[in-house]
Design a protein around this nucleic acid. Structure first.
Length: 435
RNA sequence: GCCGCUGUAGCGUAACCAGGCAGCGCGGUGGCCUGUGGAGCCACUUGUCCGAGUUCGAAUCUCGGCAGCGGCCCCA
């Protein structure tokens, strides 16, 4: 048994540099939880199969990690988090004051073929707002998505936005029921228009529906006003669809007022999850062909689980944001001080100094090896240590330490208390107050 | 699920096309050099992804598997 096949396909070991970057993204998401009033929760990794059979969509359903547990239950590793969050809200938060704002940062599992930016286990953040149909909530989700990109230093992003309510209202107008809508919208999402239209054409008013869908699909614009003008023309005979169109227009106006970044309005846009009922969006970065964040409004999902409460939310992909992010924006958590005791008698001073520095919150590392000074310095250099405290025979007698600045290569002999004083500005607590 | 490219020490690579002793760099460990040579020197460390085939002989050619990367589909 050697190491080679012990990591499963699509799974990853996250090494220190990559993990630091992911942590940076997670803290940005958690910062937004606080700023926007979301409360973070955690749901089970393993869930009953039924939970995702409800409305997750065919695509996700057959890519689930699914098995029978020892108790004979059909279970899955969660392929997405929204259904679990809805279950949590419905089961546990019925008496909470509305709106309920819930956040999470959790791993999910999908048995896809691994490729660029796609793994079988990955991590999503999430923002979900329950209990309001107000377009202000939709706009807030877009605003958060925008602030997240900016907070991570990602500049060239745009938000592809559409509205399942418009498409559904149009289909409903031609007497096409909801199950068929799910299938047709799923096919449209996959660009399998032939199959979608074939299904529609078996309905009495199918040809009219196809013609409307065709026209809507052609409306794609970075100028929202233009998109609305065209869509208004296409849908003028269908008041219910116009109503949905107005909703999207209002959301975008509110989002613009909150300085949300560039939009690409796409009237034919549909998403693979069946539960969306209104505004839907995905966030893209120039030069990166995959979505880094996606979400939308799902007003009927909670109802299926027993509490009819509207909702809107989004799920940024932590790993994909990492791909879009500049390495330089990550602050490496380097060691501040390495203590090298060169003689046994120095160990007492080393232990004392280490303890005092750590009590101040200064990241400190004691070299246990009693190796050559030059080897110790070499190690310190590779670990990006800022200061090395050397304690040899001289220092032990004088009760001092030699503190060497690794960047400037200068050094000075200080009493232990002075050394602690000098390094205390590097305290982690202090750094936190600056962030 | 389908398609393409790739697989040589812990990592990065050479030799592969045109079959003939697997080499180099980095790292790691130990040692030497009187406490700062963040170095150097010496030694050690470790490999042709797995399996079959062709051949006197395979890292090299063929087939299959697995894996990595990427593409389709879909998404985060």
């Amino acid at each position: 048994m050697r190491g080679e096949n012990l990591t499963l396909r699509g799974m990853r070991n996250l090494l220190p540099d990559e993990k630091a970057k992911l942590n940076r993204i997670e803290s940005e998401i958690r910062r937004l939880f606080k700023i926007y009033g979301f409360q973070e929760v955690e749901t089970p990794t393993v869930e009953p199969l039924e939970l995702f059979e409800l409305k997750s969509g065919e695509e996700i359903r057959h890519r689930m990690y699914r098995f029978t547990d020892l108790g004979g239950r059909e279970v899955v590793l969660r392929p997405e988090v929204t259904a679990s969050i809805v279950k949590l809200v419905v089961q546990e938060l019925r008496s909470a004051p509305l709106p309920i704002k819930i956040g999470y940062v959790l791993n999910v599992f999908r048995y896809d073929e691994p490729q660029y930016g796609r793994y079988r286990e990955f991590k999503q953040g999430g923002f979900e707002i329950f209990g309001t149909k107000s377009p202000l909530a939709d706009a807030e989700i877009l605003e958060i998505s925008s602030r997240l990109m900016e907070g991570l230093g990602i500049k060239n992003y745009y938000i592809k936005i559409g509205h399942e309510g418009i498409l559904r209202a149009a289909l409903t107008n031609f007497s096409i029921d909801e199950n068929v809508q799910d299938r047709v919208l799923g096919l449209i999402d996959k660009e399998r228009l032939g199959e979608a239209f074939e299904i529609l054409s078996s309905f009495r008013k199918g040809e009219e529906a196809i013609s409307i869908i065709r026209s809507l699909r052609e409306i794609k614009s970075k100028d929202p006003d233009e998109a609305f003008r065209k869509a208004g023309g296409v849908l003028k005979e269908i008041p219910e669809a116009i109503e949905q169109l107005e909703n999207l227009k209002e959301i975008i106006e509110l989002a613009k007022a909150s300085k949300v970044g560039e939009f690409l309005v796409d009237m034919g846009f549909a998403r693979g999850l069946d539960y969306y009922t209104g505004m839907i969006f995905e966030v893209y970065v120039e030069n990166l062909k995959i979505a880094v964040n996606g979400g939308g409004r799902y007003d009927k999902l909670a109802g299926l689980l027993g509490w009819d409460v509207p909702a809107v939310g989004c799920a940024p992909g932590i790993d994909r944001l990492s791909l879009a992010m500049d390495e330089k924006t990550v602050i490496r958590d380097d060691l501040v001080c390495m203590i090298v005791s060169m003689v046994k008698e120095g160990d007492i001073i080393a232990a004392k100094l280490a303890s005092m520095l750590r009590a101040k919150g200064v990241p400190t590392f004691v070299d246990y090896t009693r190796r050559d000074v030059s080897k110790a310095l070499s190690y310190a250099s590779k670990r990006n240590v800022k200061y090395v405290a050397l304690i040899g025979g001289r220092e032990t007698e004088a009760g001092t330490v030699t503190l060497k600045n690794m960047e400037t290569k200068s050094q000075e002999e200080l009493r232990v208390e002075q050394a602690v004083e000098k390094l205390s500005p590097y305290s982690l607590q202090r750094l936190d107050t600056h962030i």
